[in-house]
């Protein structure tokens, strides 16, 4: 039985909405694969496109940025800037060869625990199909 490939996925979750959404998924005992590790950031606007590229370089197979719905941001405009940066980042990475499906952005509010679990499961599934990401990954 071939050992099923376990992807290594990094999720940047914004502290006010998506991180609390993740906690909500926890309290309602939703299940999603253990391939996803969450890094807490104050706002989705804090995620620098360089972090995303660094994640792929260090060996992540997929990166997911979760932020508040546009208009709900605790800091008023953080997610709008995040959206602009993400729009450029995903197209540019696809352009230099890293499959765009490996990067995803989702608006998840503090109450959408169910959506958080669903998105995590979905994303983990797509990344397992895509397999490990050797592109732009460093060989140690």
């Amino acid at each position: 039985m071939s050992v099923k490939f376990k992807p290594n996925i990094i999720c940047f979750a914004c502290n006010w909405c998506s991180y609390t959404g993740a906690d909500m998924a926890g309290t309602s005992r939703m299940k999603y694969p253990a391939t996803i590790k969450i890094i807490r950031v104050p706002c989705s606007g804090r995620v620098n496109p360089t972090f995303i590229m660094k994640a792929y370089q260090k060996g992540a197979d997929g990166v997911l940025i979760a932020g508040c719905h546009p208009g709900d941001c605790h800091y008023n405009s953080g997610n709008y800037f995040a959206k602009r940066r993400f729009l450029l980042a995903t197209r540019f990475m696809n352009y230099i060869g890293i499959d765009a499906k490996r990067l995803r952005m989702e608006w998840i509010s503090a109450a959408e625990g169910v959506k958080f679990a669903r998105v995590m499961a979905e994303f983990s599934e797509t990344i397992s199909e895509l397999g490990p990401n050797w592109r732009a990954r460093e060989e140690v």
Partner: peptide
């Protein structure tokens, strides 16, 4: 250390990605 001194392929991708984004 955003960029390591070693000139491996992944570091090159990192260098050109950061430079391209800084002039975006």
């Amino acid at each position: 250390e955003m960029l390591e001194k070693t000139v491996a392929t992944s570091e090159q991708f990192m260098f050109h990605f950061i430079r391209a984004f800084h002039v975006a």
